[in-house]
Design a protein around this nucleic acid. Sequence first.
DNA 1: CTGAAAGCGCTTACAG
DNA 2: CTGAAAGCGCTTACAG
Lengths: 338, 338
Amino acid sequence: MAVTIKDVARAAGLSIATVSKYMNGGHVLESNRAAIELAIASLGYRVNVVARGLKTRRTMTVGVLIPSIEQIFSTEIIAAVEKKLSEAGFSTIVCDCQLDAELESRKMEILLEKQVDGIITMPFSGSAEPIQKAIDQGVPVVLIDRKVEGLSLDTVLVDNENLAYQAVSRLIEAGHRRIGIVLGPETLYTSQRRLAGYLAAMQTHGIPVDPGLIHPSDYQIAGGQAAFLALLERSDRPTAIFTTNYETTFAAGLMINEKGLAIPQDLSWIGFDSLSMAQIFKPRLTIVVQPIRQIGETAAQLILERVANGLELAAREIILPGAMIEGLSTRSIRKYAD
Amino acid sequence: MAVTIKDVARAAGLSIATVSKYMNGGHVLESNRAAIELAIASLGYRVNVVARGLKTRRTMTVGVLIPSIEQIFSTEIIAAVEKKLSEAGFSTIVCDCQLDAELESRKMEILLEKQVDGIITMPFSGSAEPIQKAIDQGVPVVLIDRKVEGLSLDTVLVDNENLAYQAVSRLIEAGHRRIGIVLGPETLYTSQRRLAGYLAAMQTHGIPVDPGLIHPSDYQIAGGQAAFLALLERSDRPTAIFTTNYETTFAAGLMINEKGLAIPQDLSWIGFDSLSMAQIFKPRLTIVVQPIRQIGETAAQLILERVANGLELAAREIILPGAMIEGLSTRSIRKYAD
DNA sequence: CTGAAAGCGCTTACAG
DNA sequence: CTGAAAGCGCTTACAG
């Protein structure tokens, strides 16, 4: 059916070994080179990389395993990873586990069955087990966004604590003392770090912390709305709120719109990772942003190095800085005095 | 290194043929079944689907080739496709061509080298050539979003003309007669259909068309801003504008925010494919939306059928309806009277 | 530089 | 039901 190296060899009057050698950059006689080129062109030959991979044990494919492909953070990561990897000749197989721990394990299994050369993952369950399977098979893994207990692997993180510290300090400096924060699940690494930044900022400025203003959520939109609302409905309502991921920031935007709240007159607000939303929102939001593309590029870089060099080298932990973007004349934050 | 079917066979005291048969759902003696299971579990065997694919000529992989992975339309398509395909046991290889015709061709080549079982593509260049290569190799292709001249393939489209017709009619019924439209490249199928809907609505309502209000763009953000601005700066400025894809809608939002325009007092506006933006924007926008997830699911369904049944059947063209979503009390549209 | 041969890890008729 | 053998399309030492 499809034309193979055998057909090319026959057409060129050479052995498949010679054709293979040429295909892989080896030297052949000029006359043979011409014959091979001619055969390839006229037959429309295309190398079968599946067969090649069986022999070379390289599929030139990297798996990307993420919690949910529906989150913008993930899609931007994928975009950056795919671009970087494809420049290096690698393809990307995308898997999401749809926020399901069992699927996380199964998709990892599938990736390994497919003989991917490496895996970039943003761990969902926090369990080391699915990741360990890859390591056991000698497949390098790069972690994104979160650490996993018991695993020492190449990891790309963001300086979450500092990012939260900046945001909260910004609010404190504007005079706020009752600052609400919408977090994620308590077990989630990023949420923990962002809370740490909140607490550090409060402490630095000598402001007592009201535990009632610290609100966990599932970091999804619905949960974010509930958390935001809970904060708003307190009798001792906060004068400012910091939503600490994209989904809860979006959720806050929805609630604000629905309730007809005026920002910053009714509430000061700093969001997270929602650049395009911040540009569209009126007044322009102040937000903190993660260097998402850079995270993806760095992860791609790390996995390429691992694929090339193996697992011997010590694991690297790369912590990328984020940034605070002030809204137009920071109108989303109002000066506040008791 | 890795454990193979040979190791399992040896451990179970059977031939690899028997192990293979069992792995593929064949019947073996109960005692042998137990022995194989035990061997698999204790050795941690995992089938090598690359090797299997070489023999079966099925890689259980579908390639998705899109113009740019940075466009939200594409990422939502990918999400839907990946989900549907993975339920059927297929993996997804994502390729984008970064709005580059040559890359489109090269990535197609890579997908074919990888022996994907099928390809879902949203054509970029509009050239039949890269797609024809897949067909020639017997790899089924499903087209998304656009037709390609000279190719009769399974295609998933949206009823763009009707969608635009509805939006423009909505504006006309609110009294507008000078209605600007921001389109894409003139050669782009979707842009052509949306323009057709605009023209049909104008004609139906007996409103003369001013060609100066019909503005093409590159359907990107920067180009969208320029187009929107050009429309605004006309001396005979339109009283309403329809932006006809996500990027140009977002661009309009940026400009409106930047210029401090009030919607709908200064301008009535209907956007496209920007649901989350429409929910956040004040006042809530009226928009038309494509059934993006459904497009992805349908495309996945079609490619699965093709992979199973081959290329014999006649090509199917599926046209999905979109929807108009009215903003909160449609405040983004103002009644207008000369 | 070139080619015969072995082998990557599977599956698949075909005997038994 | 089970197993020996051939073969999927390549690459890779190893001779020549």
